[in-house]
Simulated scan of single mutants.
Amino acid sequence: MVFHAPATIIAKVGTAGKGKCALPAWNMLLRGFMAGAYIAMGAALATVCSTGVADYLGSGMAKFVLGAVFPVGLIIIVLTGAELFTGDAMFAPMAAFIHRISWGSVLRLWLWVYIGNLIGSIVFAYFVAYGPYTSWSATGTATVTAFGMTAVNIAAGKTSYIGLAATWSCFLKAICCNWLVNLAILLGICADDAVGKILGIWFPIMAFVASGFEHCVANMFFIPAGLFTAPYLSADQMAAIGAKLNNLSWVSMWTNNIIVVTIGNIIGGMIFVGVIYYYSFKKEIEGSN
């Protein structure tokens, strides 16, 4: 297993970021769509696999199971070359630092990839809401499954950040999330072989999900999946979820979560990984050029 030195990894990030910023808009959008769908695949798997675990093994193990299977999305993204906004929060600024590309190019990449991630996540959320999250009778009557209940609970919880203290908590969770996500990407770049990349990615992603941190692209799946499923809840199921279901809407998806999480994710990736690592290894990078 080949292991690259830290300065080499940072230089690779800058070079990759420059290439990403040079893509045409349609390609950014297409790769962003794929990445949004791949993150949604991992999130859907995590929703299904964690259902019912807390009842038998406790809430901590339920969180671990959630985190253990979620990384499949980022593994697919890294190995297939899709574009994830939260990763580009590090890649693009690093390219600006090392190769001195314009910040306009950085913002252009962020915009198109973000839109692509959003579309891909929502499309896959629709697929699973009418797939494993609901069961349909011959007459077309829907029943929300146990997996659908988990999905709605997750979505309702993610739109329950109401008030200054709760919003601050959401913001800090978002910083922590993308700090770990981009460390996962750095560890993936450390290795040249697929097994090394997978192992490097898995541990930090498992840690962020199991810890309950907030990822804007994952939430572009989690919240719409709950929104698509919620109309089919029975009265008993709505009572089981409780008052937090009142916070779940397409508006609160943005105001109570994604806007704040996006800002926190940018800071976590750009500042806590990109800026810190660039200045930590600046002399080594410049000396090798």
Rank of each mutant, 00 (worst) to 15 (best):
A138F: 06
I122A: 09
Y126C: 10
I154L: 15
Y277G: 03
R100P: 12
V78R: 05
I258V: 12
I39S: 07
L57Y: 14
R108L: 05
S105E: 15
Y56P: 11
M90P: 01
A194W: 13
G212A: 08
Y114S: 00
A194D: 15
G264D: 01
A5N: 12
F208Y: 09
N178E: 07
W179Q: 02
W168C: 07
H99C: 05
I98W: 05
M94G: 01
W136T: 06
C176L: 15
K244L: 08
S169C: 13
V13W: 07
A146E: 12
G157K: 01
G87F: 11
A125L: 02
I271A: 11
S249N: 04
Y278S: 00
I98Y: 10
A129P: 10
G19W: 13
G148P: 08
V106T: 06
A54N: 11
S135K: 11
G42W: 04
T80C: 09
F147Y: 14
I39L: 11
K63I: 09
Y56K: 14
I266E: 10
V217F: 04
W202K: 02
V53T: 00
G274E: 07
L233N: 06
G163Q: 06
A235E: 12
A225W: 13
L183A: 09
A82Y: 03
S102N: 04
L227R: 04
D193W: 10
M34N: 14
L199V: 15
N246P: 03
L84P: 04
I241H: 12
W26T: 01
C21Q: 03
A125Y: 15
A62Y: 11
T134H: 07
C216W: 08
M253W: 15
I10Q: 09
M41T: 00
A62R: 06
L109K: 06
A5H: 14
E83Y: 13
V2T: 11
A243R: 13
S137G: 01
L45P: 02
L183Y: 07
I259N: 04
L79T: 05
Y133F: 15
I9W: 12
V128H: 05
V209A: 15
C176E: 12
S137A: 04
A156I: 00
G81F: 07
M220T: 00
I76C: 12
V275N: 10
I175S: 05
F85D: 02
L74Y: 07
S137M: 03
G196S: 11
S50Q: 04
I101D: 05
I122C: 05
S102Y: 07
W254M: 02
G104L: 15
H99M: 06
A166L: 08
W136F: 10
T141C: 04
K282A: 08
G58R: 08
D236G: 05
L107Q: 10
I154K: 14
A165I: 03
G104Q: 08
M238Q: 13
A210K: 10
M253F: 14
L233I: 00
G140S: 09
Y114N: 02
V78Q: 11
A142E: 10
N256W: 14
S105G: 12
V144A: 13
M34V: 09
F91M: 10
T51P: 07
P204Y: 09
G274F: 13
Y56F: 15
M90H: 08
E214D: 12
L172P: 02
K18Y: 06
G120E: 14
N27P: 13
G32P: 03
H4E: 10
G268A: 05
A151E: 05
S288G: 03
A43L: 01
L23S: 05
G140W: 14
N117C: 13
G104V: 03
G60Y: 03
A225P: 10
